[in-house]
């Protein structure tokens, strides 16, 4: 099939970008979206043009690198699917496809479709961990975790840190991401010790990195490729209230 792409082209950080019209010819239905871009890039290189810069790594839906807003939807039209797992059979011959980078103040564009998502790493560094002693590996099941709690933690831990929630949020808020980390660790006995401090530090880091705050639009949940639920945001809010009454929040 032949497609017309409108791709965001930006030569570098802070440079003025624009949407460029690029023809994609001879695309087959079984190509992934990124493979389609690979084919387009080969064509661009052959004709002496600059290939489209885009992020990717695992190409199997687990690393969260492939950050593209396709026709106005982060990760494109297929629910709970990353761009790399999206296939061209979702499109048809003659389609016009708009491809833009994640848009948020906290995610500056590096080039074309590549944005700098390291602000998410700094939110995690602020408290998204459990302090443990180094040394021997602890025995499995030394700390007992009820099955329901383990399931909740695993659901929240599915977050791959892709940032689609930020891209989807009208406020550029990283609340779903932050909430997933907070809820993941708060559900486990190992995480409880630092729970109060964690929620305060991580939400503070979120604000400092220039993310907006949550107005409960729930666009994040609709965009998340891992099906992270906004119930975790309510959980973060509960943890935040608890922390106000805790002496351990500093």
């Amino acid at each position: 099939m032949d497609l017309t792409l409108y791709v965001w082209r930006q030569s570098g950080p802070g440079a003025k970008g624009r949407l460029e019209e690029i023809e994609a010819r001879g695309i087959t239905a079984d190509m992934s979206f990124l493979e389609m871009l690979d084919v387009v890039n080969e064509g661009l290189i052959k004709t002496g043009r600059e290939p489209i810069a885009f992020d990717h790594d695992c190409r199997e839906g687990i690393c969260g690198m492939c950050s593209q807003v396709i026709n106005g939807v982060p990760h494109g039209p297929q629910e709970k699917t990353t761009v790399c797992q999206l296939h061209m059979r979702r499109f048809k011959d003659g389609d016009r496809i708009y491809i833009e980078p994640w848009r948020a103040r906290a995610f500056p564009v590096i080039k074309d479709l590549i944005v700098d998502r390291s602000a998410l790493d700094r939110i995690v560094q602020a408290g998204g961990y459990v302090s443990v002693h180094t040394g021997g590996v602890p025995d499995a099941n030394a700390v007992l975790v009820p099955k329901a709690d383990a399931d909740t933690a695993m659901d929240a831990a599915e977050c791959i840190g892709c940032g689609a929630c930020v891209a989807a949020c009208p406020n550029g808020s990283a609340m779903l991401f932050t909430a997933a980390k907070v809820a993941h660790l708060a559900a486990l006995p190992q995480g409880r010790a630092e729970a109060a401090r964690r929620v305060c530090m991580m939400t503070e880091a979120m604000l400092k990195e220039g993310f907006g705050s949550c107005s409960n639009h729930y666009e994040c949940q609709a965009a998340c490729p891992k099906g992270i639920k906004v119930k975790f945001i309510a959980k973060l809010n509960r943890e935040f209230i608890k922390a106000q009454f805790s002496k351990k929040s500093e």
Binding site: Y98, P170, G212, A222
Partner: peptide, 13 residues
């Protein structure tokens, strides 16, 4: 926090 808007945005929620 969202200085630049999308050329195309398809809100779902």
């Amino acid at each position: 926090a969202r200085p630049q808007s999308y050329a195309v945005r398809n809100e779902r929620a």
